[in-house]
Amino acid sequence: MSGGNDTLSMRLSPFQKIYLLLVAGFIVGPFLPVIIQSLAFRWAWPELLPGTWWLEQREKSMLPLAWDYVLSPYSRVWEATVNTVFIGLVVTAICLAICLPVARLLARESFAGKSAFEFFLSLPLIVPEAAIGIALLMIFIRMGLAGTYAGIIIAHLIPTIPYMVRMLTAVYQGLGRDFEEQAMILGARPLQILWRVTLPMLLPGVVAGALFTFLVSTNIFLLTFFLGQGQVITLPTLLFSKISGGNLDTTAAGITLIVTLPGIILLIISERFIKEEAFGKGFGS
């Protein structure tokens, strides 16, 4: 391990190192204050680091401090995390089920109104989320869907479907019909073809699309806020209720870190998965 690092750093020039550090700084930088804040007891301007740390004050404090609070049931962090992950997974699954056939159509068939369809596909990305949220809320209240999981899931599908369709269409275009037709001739039924040929061959694209959809869904605040009606809370809405006062206190910083966890875990899993399952085996010939 250290040997590898040595040879690597020996090969890099000082300039190359500076660029790498710069990029790393931009990516990791914003997290640092949040991490420090979450561990601070008091951190006031102009101190570079907190004057008093959370652990030092832990025994003396009357009130639960940052991590103690975040991890306690009062914070509802656990409930929000479960909700967020659950909604994200369901949205991803439904989104895939809807977008796979559509992407296949768009990639392979030509039909009247196809270009119009492709144009309108971008509409949800152009119309402000707030407008969509309010419009949906009025409809959903009447239908009794406001404040329900179903309502939020439907709302989350609106911004995610356009992305997913686009991504999968591109992947489908790269996959010729030959493979599926060959499978058909060899005797495979439609579901067998989907399961054994199409999905594995689309895997890198499907994983990327699913990952993206999941991350978008777990980060949607406005739609969830409008349609959750305070009855269904997710990590973003919980965070908002903590920071709506206008300052990022230690508990908010803690929740912020929790909010990023599902995404990071997923990123690590999928990174491994894509590498081993698909690209490691000489994909794409």
Binding site: G176, Q182, I185, V197, P200, M201, K281, F283, G284, S285
Partner: peptide
């Protein structure tokens, strides 16, 4: 139909 067909570009399943 129980026919066999070898495609112009073979169409071997790459995975």
């Amino acid at each position: 139909r129980n026919v066999g067909m070898v495609f112009q570009r073979y169409a071997l399943f790459p995975h």
